[in-house]
Every structure is written in C-alpha cells, then in structure tokens.
C-alpha cells in the first residue's frame, strides 16, 4: 500500500529525512518510534501532502502512485488520513459542519452519494459514542477551546468517520491520560481491517500495549536504523535510543 524508497526531505533548507525506506502493506500496523527531532512528524506531514516540505530525492508510492503527484486533498480522498500531533483550532465552524463537508468531499470522490443531514447525523452519532465523547461535541467549533485530550479524540473521531485506508497517527497518545489512551486504542483496534493500514508514531511503549503492532521501526537522524517486532519497543523502553547507531543502514 505504502512504499517509501530513499526518501530525502528538506524543511526550510535543512535536510530532515535522509534516505528513509519503509513498506507498509494493507492490514498491517506499523509503529514508528524515535527521539525528538528524528523526523517522525516530518514524515507524517510529508505523507499528508504538506507543500512547504520539499522532497529532494527518493519517492513515496501509495498504491503504486507517486504521492508527489497528488495534492493534500487528493491524498485524503484516495484514503490517506493524518491524525495531527497538534490539531488546528478553527473557530466559527462547527465540528458537525466540518465533518460533513469532509465526508462528502471524500464520498463524492469515490462516486458515492453525498449524505444529507439526517443520514450524516445518524452515522456521526454512532462514531461519537465510539470515541467516548458527548454529542454536544459536534456543535462545538472545530478543536476550539478543546482540552488536549479532546483534540486527540476529535482526530480519532474524524478517522472513524472518514474511514481511510492508510491512517497515520502522529503522537496521538501524548497528553492522554490512561483512560483516554485506552479509548483511543480500542477505537483504533475496532477500525483494524485487512484493507486498512496504520502507521502509529509514538514516543512511548505504553500505547503499543494497547495497539499491538506488526512491525516497529526506529527513526534516528532521518533514517530508519532498526526494525523489528513488538519486542523492539520493549527494548527501547528499557535502554533508550542513545545506544542505537546514528544513521546506520538497517
């Protein structure tokens, strides 16, 4: 589904990703770990289509298509979803309006009929319960005045409504208490399917106790320096990242 080869990315003239390779197949859950500044969020943003991040070498293919040829909205419509580390506040637009606009943009791209207000509400109410939120949440402006935890849950709500094929979670666990973490994890687990893949970016092993990954990768200085099974996450938890090589090939 996602095939990244020798990806180099510059941000404001500084190279952040320095030859990253990663293959994610449908149905798999991959965890991406690594110290601060290693390039995790840069990778997430590049995959979502951020235009001021320059791909200088290599490529990322989604279903065999080069992502460089697709703008952010096309990627979303084709099924890529990024749960932001810092979701953006948009005062003046209700969550419901926003979700409906997004869902209908994606549905019409897929050749599906747009949902009217009634059908949309019955779908979204269901998903709101799934992420453990109150229905009044839909009437509040997008992320505006939300607590950190509410923002993260709102990202998962969007994930549940938009039903992407590739979901990238950028530190969705940071700032969540253990109960919220469990709710988020349960929601992700409920959405796991043979057609859907997850790339879960996290600092902490604790999320991976709830979302069990097929593969764990360690990103350091713009490259994946180690890959392994869930056991690798435990190893990192006890030894930290410092003993890892600085950008050795894996």
């Amino acid at each position: 589904m996602l095939q990244i080869t020798d990806l180099h990315v510059e941000v404001d003239g500084t190279e952040i990703l320095k030859g990253l390779d990663l293959v994610v197949r449908a149905g798999e859950v991959h965890a991406l770990m690594g110290p601060n500044g290693s390039g995790k969020t840069t990778l997430a943003q590049v995959l979502a289509g951020r235009e001021d991040y320059q791909i200088t070498r290599g490529q990322a293919l989604f279903d065999g298509r080069d992502l460089a040829d697709m703008d952010a909205e096309t990627r979303a419509r084709e099924g890529i979803f990024l749960a932001f580390q810092y979701p953006v506040e948009i005062a003046g637009v209700s969550n419901a309006y926003f979700l409906k606009a997004a869902l209908n943009a994606i549905r019409s791209h897929r050749g599906q009929a747009e949902l009217d207000a009634v059908d949309f509400l019955s779908l979204v109410r269901d998903r709101v319960r799934l992420v453990g939120l109150d229905e009044s949440f839909l009437e509040r402006p997008v992320n505006h005045g939300f607590s950190g935890g509410e923002k993260k849950r709102n990202e998962i709500l969007q994930l549940a409504v938009l039903e992407p094929r590739l979901a990238i979670l950028d530190e969705t666990d940071s700032g969540l208490d253990i109960d919220a973490l469990r709710v988020v994890a349960e929601c992700v687990n409920a959405l796991r399917s043979p057609e859907r893949a997850f790339l879960v970016i996290t600092h902490y092993q604790r999320l991976l106790e709830h979302i069990v990954p097929d593969r764990v990768h360690v990103l350091k200085d713009g490259r994946i320096v180690r890959s392994g099974t869930g056991a690798l996450a435990l190893e990192l938890e006890s030894h930290g990242y410092s003993e890892l090589p600085a950008a050795a090939a894996n």
Partner: peptide
C-alpha cells in the same frame, strides 16, 4: 492544510475559513 488533509479542496477550505472568520 488541516482542512485539505480532510479532503476539502483549496477553494472549499478557503471559503470555509472565510465564513468562519465572519461568523
């Protein structure tokens, strides 16, 4: 960017933000 990653094209995203600003 956030709105576009949710599938809204640039024009729709701009309209939405303009309306939000006025609201």
């Amino acid at each position: 960017f956030y709105l576009r990653t949710r599938g809204l094209d640039r024009e729709a995203a701009e309209s939405l933000l303009t309306y939000a600003f006025a609201s």
